[in-house]
Nucleic acid binder design. Structure first.
Lengths: 252, 252
DNA sequence: CGCAACCTTGACACTTGTCAACACAAGTGG
DNA sequence: CCACTTGTGTTGACAAGTGTCAAGGTTGCG
């Protein structure tokens, strides 16, 4: 059984790329998966608001969550008490996979906006999967996708300098929106500088400086009176900016 | 159906921890999983040697691989040609999960040592899972474990300074060995400084300097005439070293 | 108005990368 | 046996990138 190629969303890499050329297709794909989940699993549906906790690290695991809408962050609490944003999740993503191995949730999942969460007991999911192979395919694909995405962000964080990380973040963000059929030229970050920096392994000052630099270079533009909404006039130029800098570093 | 807590191997974090207190239990757990896989799936078995390629990025996906012995690295090739080590895999780990979503392998998997690889067609695995729920549990746990492990290393790479990363790497390594029932006081890294640095997002010089510093502080000791084999006399002291530095950084 | 969040910018220090030189071991071929 | 090469590891000097600290600006809200 060969799976058809998914919209693997090679998000969060340095390669310059047009924003989601397969936008519609992938949005459809997500919609189809959600519809199948809705009909086969009849998940419990819940509307959440900014700040609502889906689960916390350490809680016993018994249910998985599928996001129908909204924006969510995954927070990992290190031993010394600092929080680290380890992922952002949107419509079509699953929450809770990381808890299967340990029996307890491995991080906090928190809504950053109004959204709808579907919840299914894990054992019910397993039973449904044994009856419906197409559901198994969707679950495995979602887990696999999460592995690929995490790996991509790992590479970005390991190898890219600060400004390239911020650019990669902007590309990732626009990609995620485009793939769900939303407009990408005018985007709202919905994260503070501190949260972006935390996610990217940078300080908030560095994020602010990079954004200012990009704005001075006309690669992005801030909305009037609101520096969280930004506009990306030319996607290709944004990626090329990073490429140029990397080439410069290589020179003597 | 509540899963029993697995040996989640919170490898690769900053928290000081004794090396694998549950060593035997976890080795047994891996052995049980392998036995189940062997009997239910009758995988094709193959002996590999250092440098052998299990798969390459871009090859079409149809089979998963389970490692019975040996050491393997996952290499991700970025757009501009640089290689990045994105993971190390040992006995009991699976290879190929990241290919499920995309239909093609997402990275290279290369043996670094003599070992034995078991290979199963993915569709055969799915069929077996539908008949044997306990196999599904093992597969899901392995995928979940991979997600957790990747996330842990992400945190380490994002938030830790260079010396803490190297210490975390040593702890991860000793943990991995201990969990499989091997001795941890005398370990062979089997990686060059360059490979360690690549994996940790550091240069080989930085890795070398950190190891020298640890050796000067008597936290590790090099083997005579072979600086790849190292000895860790006191595991707790190694972790405490990082904690102390972090506390120092916080002071004014 | 005052206050709290959030953002920006500058000066400075520190960590780490870059470049270079050298040491050492293993293999190769004269 | 000795040069020579290659791969690996160590160490130092220096520079670049980024974090830290501090000050001030803007927005929104009670």
């Amino acid at each position: 059984m060969q799976l058809q190629p998914a919209c693997t969303a090679s998000n969060f890499t340095a390669a310059p790329r047009q924003a989601a050329p397969e936008a519609g297709a992938c949005g459809q794909r997500i919609a189809d998966a959600l519809k199948l989940i809705a009909t086969l699993l009849e998940p419990q549906r819940r509307v959440v608001h900014a700040g609502d906790v889906i689960y916390r690290a350490g809680e016993p695991f018994s249910r998985l969550h599928i996001l129908n809408s909204g924006l969510f962050k995954l927070l990992s609490l290190s031993a010394d008490g600092r929080e680290q944003v380890v992922g952002l999740r949107l419509r079509g993503d699953w929450l809770g996979f990381s808890a299967i191995a340990g029996g307890v949730y491995a991080c906090d999942a928190i809504a950053m906006d109004t959204g709808e969460v579907w919840t299914v007991p894990y054992d019910a999911l397993l039973r449904a999967c044994s009856r419906h192979p197409e559901l198994t395919a969707i679950v495995h694909e979602a887990m696999s996708h999460e592995i690929v995405r995490d790996r991509d962000s790992l590479i970005a964080l390991c190898t890219l300098p600060a400004d390239a990380r911020v650019v990669a973040f902007l590309q990732f963000w626009a990609d995620s929106l485009a793939r769900r059929g939303l407009r990408t030229d005018q985007i709202s970050l919905r994260l503070t500088r501190a949260e972006i920096g935390n996610y990217l392994g940078l300080t908030l000052e560095t994020v602010s400086r990079v954004l200012s630099k990009l704005a001075r270079a006309r690669l992005i533009a801030f909305n009037e009176k609101n520096r969280r909404d930004i506009c990306i006039p030319d996607f290709h130029a944004l990626g090329a900016f990073v490429q140029r800098r990397e080439a410069g570093v290589g020179l003597h």
